[in-house]
């Protein structure tokens, strides 16, 4: 187990090492992995720059909005898919799965054109609205719901509860482990996404972290490795925090069951 973990973390060690290297330290061999002189200058460069603070804020706003949307809308759709078994909803399920299968890059041009016509380019809306209900999350919660006996909300309906009431009071709490995954996963994908946010933004006002990092660390032919790695590591911190939090929520929920 521990050996596996070591192998698993080695490439990250390389990243960390590169991000901490002082000037003039080229990686030549394995031994160079341990930096002779450690500098936090690259981290300072990212953290002290007002621009990066702004990118961080933008990424946070967008990610929170997208995660919130998915936490509410995806389980609703998944629940409806599972419980209303009709021809129409079976088509819906096929559509959900089909959406996941369409290569995203081909949709960029029509998406860009549409958002441009809506005057949403370079606004948070362009980065949030198209991603509010990810088919991937609908499908995951749908699969997860299958493992949960559907008697749990029957009692609520017998007591005359409305659908929204039964769903959010009774079903939603049981979904917590899945919701933790939805939150982590959505955050992760959104937080690291580069191409669409790059295309859909044009100013520092809404530009997100990966886009900012690319602009500042990558020249036409050369890369500022240290800056890029320091930035990437800093960018990974919030995701790790979110993941640990969501795991705790899921576990405490299990303990109380």
């Amino acid at each position: 187990m521990l050996i596996l973990l070591f192998i698993n973390l080695l490439p990250l060690g390389v990243m960390l090492s590169v991000s901490l290297k002082g000037e003039g330290s080229v990686l030549r061999s394995l031994a160079d992995l341990i930096p002779k002189q450690i500098t936090f200058a690259h981290y300072a460069e990212v953290l002290s720059s007002g621009r990066f603070a702004r990118y961080f804020l933008n990424s946070t706003i967008v990610a929170i909005a997208v995660v919130a949307g998915n936490l509410i809308f995806a389980p609703m759709a998944a629940y409806a898919l599972l419980r209303s078994d009709s021809k129409v909803t079976r088509i819906f399920l096929v559509l959900v799965i089909a959406t996941m299968m369409v290569p995203k890059h081909i949709m960029m041009i029509p998406l860009f054109t549409m958002l441009y016509r809506m005057h949403l380019i370079d606004t948070y809306f362009a980065l949030v609205l198209p991603f509010l209900v990810d088919a991937f999350n609908v499908f995951f919660v749908y699969q997860y719901l299958k493992t949960i006996p559907h008697e749990i909300e029957e009692a609520a309906f017998m007591d005359g509860a409305s659908l929204a009431n039964a769903f959010f009071r009774v079903v939603y709490p049981v979904l917590k482990p899945a919701l933790a995954v939805v939150a982590t996963n959505t955050f992760l994908i959104n937080w690291n996404s580069f191409l669409l946010p790059f295309v859909l933004t044009s100013s520092d006002k809404v530009r997100t972290l990966p886009v900012g990092l690319a602009i500042f660390s990558q020249g036409e032919h050369s890369t500022d490795w240290s800056l890029l790695m320091a930035g990437s590591i800093l960018a990974a911190v919030p995701t790790i925090v979110i993941w640990i939090r969501s795991q705790k929520i899921a576990q405490s929920m299990l303990a109380s069951r």
Partner: peptide, 23 residues
């Protein structure tokens, strides 16, 4: 002047998309 910065990695894609939508 409103300046927009393109990245070397994907700047050209953005140019193509922008031209195709009239931006």
């Amino acid at each position: 002047v409103k300046m927009e910065t393109l990245t070397w990695q994907s700047g050209f894609e953005k140019v193509v998309m922008a031209f195709s939508s009239g931006r």
